[in-house]
């Protein structure tokens, strides 16, 4: 098992944990966190492929990771803002109880 393979396995595991969390948790904040974990797994993949890829001087993997982190930050801010607004409306953060389109 090479180093690259083990990094990819860790990343796959991380992705699955995030997916399981996003599917099973009922609190909207934790669903968002699960999505963040999946994004992080992708970042780890980018960096592992950059490090062990044929052309590490191109820095493409690092650039992708940096942009992905910024996108994740923006996503977290907007997502948590939406959760706060939804909480004000529905008085809950349980995604199962947010089931009405019309207020």
């Amino acid at each position: 098992m090479s180093s690259l393979t083990s990094y990819l396995l860790v990343s796959a595991l991380l992705f699955s944990i995030g997916l399981a969390g996003a599917l099973t948790r009922r609190n909207a904040i934790l669903v968002l966190i699960g999505i963040e974990l999946m994004l992080n797994a992708a970042n780890l993949n980018f960096l592992a492929f950059w490090r062990y890829g044929p052309n590490p001087a191109a820095l493409t993997g690092v650039m992708f990771a940096i942009f992905s982190i910024s996108i994740a930050a923006a996503e977290a801010a907007v997502g948590l803002g939406i959760i706060l607004a939804a909480h004000r409306h529905f008085k809950t953060t349980d995604v199962n109880q947010m089931n009405a389109l019309k207020g």
Binding site: Y7, L14, L44, L47, W50, R51, V62, A65, I66
Partner: peptide, 13 residues
């Protein structure tokens, strides 16, 4: 995860 990035040589990230 950040420590893993460091181990991959991506200090900035």
């Amino acid at each position: 995860l950040a420590a893993l990035y460091l181990q991959l040589g991506a200090q900035f990230v």
